[in-house]
Amino acid sequence: MFIKTKEILEASESALLGFSVNRSLLKPVQRLFVYPLAYLKVGFGDFTKPMAVWSFTSFALMMLLTLFSSNMEMPQEVFLILFNMCIWGILLLKTFSTPSSYAFYGATEVSVNKIVDILDKNGVQSESDIKLLENNLEKVEQRINARVKFYKWIIGSFWGLYLLIFNFQLRFLSLSDKKIDDSFLNSSFEGFLYVVLFTVFALLAMFSYKRASNMLIASYFCLLNAMLYLHRGFVQLFNISRINTDFGIFRVSGDWCFKSPKVESITLKSIEVLGTDGWVLLDKTSERNSQLIENLLPLLLSHLLLKNNAM
């Protein structure tokens, strides 16, 4: 399971960053030079998304206020009150927005489906596998939090070193009876600006790294808890990569209740047929495919029962 967890994390990182999950010769080079920048970019986008929403909303309201005030006489005091409400009122509403409006920024249907495919590909189906994977991911999350704390120590140590050096400079000047001239003040101010810029950059990088890691790990915890609930409710996910029938070759995914093995207990998530140009996704709601699905369901049930008895 340790090896599986590593492979699952690597594939999930590739999916999160928009790269192919398949292994290649360039993958180690990408992981070393490209992935860190892309990882920070994803985290920075998630971190600044509320600010982008606030900026766009405030700008749109201020434009409407400007157009409205230009067409009618409005006291300056009223205009200033409404102007500040457009800025600070929206900021207040966005700051204290309900969790449902921001908790799932990183989790989308596409990303969850990719994670499901990765778990199916690595054979994480049983309850014991899910629990082992969850325990390993908890350890990974602890390592991530430890690394973030280390980054905080680096920033704090950098400021401590800067203040210590600046204090030594002042003490040296006081002992040597030299006056604090403009050149010393200018150089000190430039050094202070460099330290502030470094701190801002380091904090942004640290928050971006933390946000991207949360997006990666939190999606797994939500999905694994849902999978545990399904297993404890005697519902099992399945992903049949290839099933041969007299009326075609199909690739099917969905779930079924193995404690009540009936055709009615099978729920199809997706169904694809192998055509001349490769796999073609079928529309489950189409009347044209309803008869095909009805003929396929008994074969799926036999396949699932055979696979379940062999486990």
Rank of each mutant, 00 (worst) to 15 (best):
C257L: 05
S157N: 03
E10N: 12
L193G: 06
Y151G: 05
V263M: 11
Y220N: 12
L93H: 00
R147H: 10
E190H: 09
L173R: 12
E190W: 14
R251G: 00
W88A: 06
M215W: 00
E10P: 00
G156C: 07
F33W: 11
E294Q: 09
D177K: 13
F79D: 06
A202L: 05
F250R: 05
T245W: 09
F184M: 08
L37P: 01
H231D: 03
K131A: 06
V78H: 04
S270H: 13
T48H: 02
W88Y: 13
C86L: 09
L37E: 04
V200L: 14
R232T: 12
Y35M: 04
L91C: 07
A15N: 07
F201D: 02
L164V: 12
F44Y: 10
N309K: 15
P36E: 12
V124D: 05
L204W: 11
Q169L: 14
R288V: 14
V124C: 08
V21F: 00
F47H: 00
R211S: 02
V29A: 12
V140C: 02
V196H: 07
T95F: 13
S286V: 01
A205T: 05
D277A: 11
F59D: 02
M72G: 00
T5Q: 10
L299Y: 10
L64R: 00
F250S: 13
L224E: 09
L26M: 13
F247Q: 05
Y102V: 04
C222D: 09
Q125H: 08
A146M: 04
F33S: 03
V196F: 14
S58I: 00
R251H: 05
A52G: 01
R171F: 10
Y229G: 15
E13K: 04
I180W: 13
C86A: 14
T267K: 12
F201H: 01
F221W: 06
M74S: 04
F104K: 03
G254F: 07
W153L: 08
D181I: 03
S12V: 00
K149Y: 04
R211Y: 03
Q125I: 10
N136W: 08
R23V: 06
L299F: 08
F198Y: 15
L193Q: 12
L223M: 04
L223V: 02
N145K: 02
K114A: 10
T5V: 08
A107G: 01
F59N: 03
K41N: 04
V263P: 00
E138G: 07
W159Y: 08
V196K: 05
Q30K: 14
G45E: 01
W54D: 05
G275H: 06
Y39M: 12
Q169C: 13
K49A: 01
S176K: 07
Q236K: 14
L17R: 00
K4Y: 10
S270G: 10
V42D: 02
F158Y: 07
V29T: 07
E141V: 02
T57G: 01
N244D: 13
F168L: 15
T267L: 08
L281N: 13
A15G: 05
E272M: 09
S101C: 04
K114E: 13
N122W: 11
F96R: 03
L292P: 01
N225P: 07
L93Y: 02
N22E: 15
L193I: 15
M311T: 06
A60L: 11
I3H: 08
S290E: 12
S14N: 14
F234T: 07
M51T: 07
L40P: 01
T48W: 03
L299W: 04
D177N: 15
S70I: 01
G191K: 09
A11Q: 13
N167D: 11
